[in-house]
Every structure is written in structure tokens, then in C-alpha cells.
Simulated assay, not measured.
Amino acid sequence: MEECKVRVERSQAKKEKPDAQELVFGRVFTDHMLVMDYAEPVGWHDARIVPYQPITIDPSAMVFHYGQSVFEGLKAYVTPEGEAQLFRPKKNLERLNRSNDRLCIPRVDEEFLLEAIRELIALEKDWIPKAEGTSLYIRPFIISTEPFLGVAPSHHYKLMVILSPVGAYYKEGINPVKIAVENQFIRAVKGGTGEAKTGGNYAASLKAQEIADKSGFAQVLWLDGVEKKYIEEVGSMNVFFKINGEVVTPALNGSILEGVTRNSVIQLLKHWNIPVIERRISVEELFEAHANGTLEEAFGTGTAAVISPMGQLSWNDKNIVINGEKTGALAKQLYDTLTGIQYGTMEDPFGWIEPVPDYQKLVEAVSQAGN
């Protein structure tokens, strides 16, 4: 991307900001968004921050018919000193490009996109809520926009980044949730798109989630698509199990999304000298561990919820209660540490935090760099 700067069109009609104490997840959006287009042979071009608005797109745009799209999710936080910061954004943009590769979408310049996102966050800093457990959710996504009814990779794309001030992903917060192990439906298999963050994976999960919702479960735990035996992930989270003092998480196998929070948890556990292993684990093994008293904790990890303890698991009409349906000590320690680093109240020994500069200083720095 040659000499591609971000032009800014400021909104003239600012929205009223919601009460931070009443935020739900993903319902309110900020004043501005980032947009960038792709066309052959130009490549990615015309990066711009504009007022948040509907987009106009041709009814024959390929995304509507063949589902060529990818997205990411990360967050911005505000420290007690009032500074804005991001948590491991480079990992998210690396994964975005892996998803792009799988969906035949042109790769983006990760360094440029991160700087553009930092500029957007700096402009929208006042939208970052300050109440406990709240943050500014960042949703980059790419859709295919070429008007063509043919099964082939598009030649035109649109990248957008929208922002949403959010509260807890689950109404339970850090309290344990009920999870249903899915036996009937399949979300992904090795060789498919399970390791990419693409909309089709989530569309494939909706039927099972709808059934689980009606039965009072917060999420579905997916098994492998071949043997329907080995645990993979929850709909919006990777999963971890503490069994007899050792933490086990399903190994990445081509159908499991490589979570940024998952990676962070593994690093923290190793940093604390807590045994952690990535391997296949069957649902039978998990229920046997509960039966013999060695299943100590179970929890999910993800950007949206950070750490979400599992209080109950249901499988084949069997229901087990984990750790007395209370948040385990390890899950609480991981949650406190991750959120402490994210909000700037704890030391960051890993270099995970990316500061967001003051908007005016950022504009001045960009201007000087251009001169």
C-alpha cells in the first residue's frame, strides 16, 4: 500500500453516549467508523474515517450469495490515569490475514491497519466506558462486494472497522454458565473453515445454539465433526479443563479457532509454572474425571467474555456440576490478571499492551511524518 494515509471526515451530529452501568454487548455504536476499499489492480486504497452510517451495496454483491467474509474482535480499555490502550492487537491482525488467506481475500497491511485503528480509537476515546467490566469492542471485518453471480473469489472488497461500548458478554459475568455438549450438529471439520474467523462458521452454529437457549444453556460445546468424540470449542470461546492439577486445552487441529485469549492464558499458566498441555481430550474422559473427582475446574476463554467459568455440563442426558457451580480459584486468578493487564492496574510482563496516543498528538505526528 503506497503512501496510503487515512483521511478523516468528522461527524457533525454526535450521538448521546449510553449509561456505562446499563451497557449490553453489541447494541450501541460510536460516531465514526474506518472504511477501506480493494479493487484490482489498485489493491487496498482510500482509507478513511467517516461518520458511522449505513452502506450502499449492490444486491448482486458476492458476499450475499457466496459468503466470502471475515472478521475480528478486540477491545480498547481506559486506565485509571485516563489513557486508552489495546490488548495484543497485532495477534488479531495476524489472524485476520490467516482468515483472509483461507477465504481467498487479499491480505491487508497489518502495520498500516493497526495505525488506522489506533487513529480511530484516539478519535473515539470518549466512547471507552469507565465502569468496571466495560470496554470498547472493536470489530474489523471484510466483505466481498463485486456485483457478480458466479462462484469465484471476488475482485472487489470493503474493509470496515466499527466500535461498540460494551458490558459483560454473558449476563452471568464471571459467574459460572451452563453449557450443552452438542451431539447432533457439526460446526466445522479439519480442512474446512473452522480455523478461520468467518461468518459461515457462526451461521452453522445457530441452530444448535437456538435449541440450547430454549433449554436454559448459555452456550454449546462442540465435538469434532468426524468421530463426535473429542472436545473442540464453545461457540464463542476456546475451552480449558483443570484435571488433577494439570490444565488441558484441545490442541489446534485445523477446525478450532486459535484464540488470542487462549494463547494469553497458556502463556500465563507457563509463567506461573502451572502444568498446561494442548492435546485431544474426549468428552468421555471429561465425564470420567468428574466421576472420579479429578475434574477441578472448567472455563472458556475469549475476547468478549475474557474468562467464563463453566458451572454445569450436559451431555447425552447426563448433567455434571463442576466445582460446586462456583468460580474456581484458577479461573478467577486468570480473569483478574488478564483484566488487570488490560485495564492497566497490573504489570504487563509480556509486552501485550499497545497504547493509543492522544488524537491531536497523533494527527501532528502523522502530519510531520508526511513532511
Rank of each mutant, 00 (worst) to 15 (best):
K242V: 09
D358R: 02
R95L: 05
F217A: 09
I322T: 03
W127E: 01
K75Q: 03
G311T: 00
G82A: 05
Y66M: 06
V234L: 15
E246M: 10
T145H: 07
R10T: 13
A168Q: 14
V181C: 06
H156C: 14
D19L: 09
L123I: 02
D31A: 11
F299T: 00
E124R: 01
A116W: 06
L113A: 09
V276E: 08
M33S: 00
G82I: 07
S314Y: 04
A369Q: 11
R118E: 14
G26Y: 04
N316D: 12
Q209R: 14
Y52V: 12
F87Q: 03
D109C: 13
E83P: 01
E111T: 14
I174V: 03
L96W: 11
F148Y: 08
E354M: 11
E22L: 13
I117D: 11
E232Y: 05
N244Q: 13
F217N: 07
S236T: 15
L93W: 10
Q333G: 00
E182I: 08
E258R: 11
K158C: 13
D213G: 10
S99T: 05
K90F: 14
I353K: 01
Y359L: 02
W272Q: 06
T30M: 03
K17H: 08
E94L: 05
D37K: 05
K242T: 11
G43P: 07
G259K: 03
A251N: 09
Y52S: 14
N201W: 12
M160F: 06
A39D: 15
E182A: 05
E195D: 15
T294R: 03
L34A: 07
E233R: 04
L163V: 08
V247H: 03
L74K: 02
G344C: 05
W127V: 02
I322K: 00
